[in-house]
Write a protein that binds this DNA or RNA. Sequence first.
DNA 1: CGCGGCGTTGATCTCTGTCAATACTTGTGG
DNA 2: CCACAAGTATTGACAGAGATCAACGCCGCG
Lengths: 232, 232
Amino acid sequence: MDVRDWQIVRSTPLFGAMSQDVAQSIIGTQPVRSYEKQTQLFQQGEPATCFFLVLDGWVKLYRSTPDGHEVIVGVFKRGETFAEAAIFLGGRYPVSAEVVTSARLLRVDGEILRRRIREQPDLALSMLASASAHLKLLVEQIEKIKILSAPQRIADFLVGLSPVRQGATIIELPYEKALIANRLGMKPESFSRALVKLRPLGISVDRDRVTVADVQLLVRFAEAVDREEEGF
Amino acid sequence: MDVRDWQIVRSTPLFGAMSQDVAQSIIGTQPVRSYEKQTQLFQQGEPATCFFLVLDGWVKLYRSTPDGHEVIVGVFKRGETFAEAAIFLGGRYPVSAEVVTSARLLRVDGEILRRRIREQPDLALSMLASASAHLKLLVEQIEKIKILSAPQRIADFLVGLSPVRQGATIIELPYEKALIANRLGMKPESFSRALVKLRPLGISVDRDRVTVADVQLLVRFAEAVDREEEGF
DNA sequence: CGCGGCGTTGATCTCTGTCAATACTTGTGG
DNA sequence: CCACAAGTATTGACAGAGATCAACGCCGCG
């Protein structure tokens, strides 16, 4: 784990709030491992022994239904932690996790963390903040699936990926389109078509490169919920 | 706060795990208040000073979009806590809360709680369990919205409301149908029609009374995702 | 009695899923 | 270097679920 990695660790709500040496004491002995694409990290229902921090690459969290359907409930990237809450929930993962690009992950043992929390109550506040962030994210995700159309969800997704808030830019799609589609709650075909519908807004796609004429346009489009002004 | 209230408090993941006297010391000094229907508890964006436990009645959490739309992200009933996560996240509520029936709520001050956590580390662990439980619930909600049809979501909702797991029962709809519809991610008209489609399964509705011939049937219906037997 | 809120029903439309066919990319082996 | 296969993306035709718009019925209330 080099300096760059350490910066990433300190940027998370979980490890950022605690003091340098406490963070060090928790993750100092933990391994950083590289994972191949499609590596299964854990399955839903398994005992939750540890949680993860993404140093590089992408990881998807999903649930499998009895008949083979798969629903993505989150995709995590560099600087994000996941499954840290599961450690406290009956000790079982409520979702499955799979690496979707080759990735480097920091793996943190749950038992260590639990022990440290007993010694250092302030840690719990960091944990709670982190869990809250995820809660907020999920709440937003529900909101978006409920009220935004497919093209709007894509626009929102692209905005979230864009390095700038206005003007032109080029965005690299971070992983397969089928995966993005699932994450946004639609089928790959719908994803494809929805992208076409964004063309009039200055979006063009070539392979995994998306060219955006004006991000602002996307923002407005994603927020436009009908425009019926009921005074209420 | 009487004996019954105390039982409710002890049944929550948050307060159930901690010892009697600790729970007592935290909430003993906190007020139980009665609220009229439509009382606004807090608005999204406000500083989060406290969280709530429902002793009686129903409370909805929702987000207002810039153009006046309203999305329900959760409805909480007796025995459930809400907004406790917000206290640790930047100190602001991510959603608004409104009482939808006359209700009795326990209001817990965040500052007091934070102090107690520092004194009593185990307290933190049980709180984390609570946050995790909500997280899991949200994940499940996403899954349901994505893959269940409208009638299935209603079936699932009714099952969750039913006091029994099998046989016949009568369920009282806890709040307005338009509100339920929103919570389940559909329009009131669709809700109405979907209820009709459940008639063949032994469901009949009169006002806010739902008569269920066999809950088991509903369970199976809600779980049936297609039933196409692809050997896979 | 008339009014307003809520719920239901009907007709129609739009969006998205499904199924199928067709590129396009990438990798493999001859 | 090319042929072929497998995985991935796009496009088309179609069907179904749910949204929308509108009308109507029901009930409580002034």
